[in-house]
Every structure is written in C-alpha cells, then in structure tokens.
C-alpha cells in the first residue's frame, strides 16, 4: 500500500528531471550547431571589413614611408649629405614598427572576450596564425633584450602610432630639405 501512495510523486520528480534534461539537451545541440553556422557565415564579412578598413590603409601608409625613407638613405649617401644620419634614423625606426604596434584596438572583440571571461572564466581563442605571429614577436623582443643587455633600456618599449606620426613629420621635412618633391597623397 505504501508503495502505491509513494509512487506518484517520485515518478513526477523523475519525469520532471527527464523533461529538463531533454529540453536542455536539444537546446544545447541547437546552440552548438547555431554557433558553428553563425561563425562560418560571418567570417568573410569580418575579413573583408578588417582588410579594407584597417589593414590596407595602415599597411599602405607605413609601406609608403618605408619606401620613401629607403630611397632617401640611398640618395643622400650618394651625395654625401649631412642629412644622411637623419634618414638612417628614420628608416631604422620605421622598419622596427609592427602591425601589432599600430593596429587600433578592436573594442568589440575586447568587450566580447571580457564577457566570456566573466561568465565562463574562459579566454576566447585567438586565431592560430595570429597567435603564432605574436609569440614569434615576443621571442624577438626577448632576444633583442638579451643581445643589447641593459645598455639601453629605453629602446625596449614598442613604438606606437604617435611615434609613427612623428616619424612621418620628420620624413616630410627631410624630403623637403633634400630638395625632392613627392606627392604624398
């Protein structure tokens, strides 16, 4: 007799648990597959935006400056000009600039990574290729520090966009002083 009376609530609790499990199983499966589809659908859109809006203009600008500086070094050393030192300094400084130094922050990416960290305590994966590149650059920095010792600690800070802007002004002045005429566009 006891069994009969007790049976019902137990079964109810059980079926409730099964129901919850079933619903969350299906929701989770849908969520996982939705993430994959959503990601694949948006990759190209993001790629094109980053390519055209950030990568190309920054690369073109820095590349132009480097090209101009390299010719100035060649031209001024031919003519034995006292301006050569300045040209060399600018050229060397420009060559040490990396994309990571001057790339603007991706605020949406930072915000989203922060949300992940807060809700799950997990960091968002960085694309492998970019992760590898950053690691190589970190290694480069370390080797530079080792080889130059502590002789010139000020040199170890990475250049910034502000530094690049200053270099551009110096480069423009140098072009004028060299008597050349360049369309900077």
């Amino acid at each position: 007799m006891d069994d009969i009376w007790d049976d019902e609530p137990v079964q109810n609790a059980q079926s409730h648990a099964e129901w919850t499990k079933m619903s969350s199983d299906f929701t989770n499966t849908g969520y996982r597959e939705g993430i994959t589809a959503g990601k694949e659908g948006a990759l190209q859109e993001g790629f094109d935006a980053g390519f055209a809006q950030i990568g190309v203009p920054l690369g073109r600008e820095l590349g132009n400056m480097r090209g101009i500086a390299s010719v100035l070094v060649a031209f001024l050393s031919q003519s034995g000009s006292p301006l050569l030192d300045e040209a060399r300094t600018i050229s060397t400084a420009l060559n040490s600039v990396r994309f990571a130094d001057i790339a603007p922050r991706d605020l949406e990416a930072e915000e989203h990574a922060r949300q992940h960290l807060e809700t799950e305590g997990e960091e968002v994966d960085v694309p492998e290729e970019i992760d590898d590149k950053r690691k190589m650059e970190g290694l480069e920095d370390m080797l530079n520090k080792l080889s130059s010792g502590a002789l010139n600690p000020a040199d170890h800070s990475r250049p910034t966009m502000a530094d690049v802007t200053k270099l551009k002004t110096r480069l423009e002045n140098l072009v004028l002083e060299s008597g050349l005429n360049i369309n900077w566009s």
Binding site: A103, D106, A109, V126
Partner: peptide
C-alpha cells in the same frame, strides 16, 4: 565570433 576572428585575419 566570426566577425571578430574574420576582422583579425583580414586586417
């Protein structure tokens, strides 16, 4: 995630 990752690669 797709937009973020794509942007990082594209730039």
């Amino acid at each position: 995630h797709g937009l973020i990752e794509g942007r990082a690669l594209g730039r």
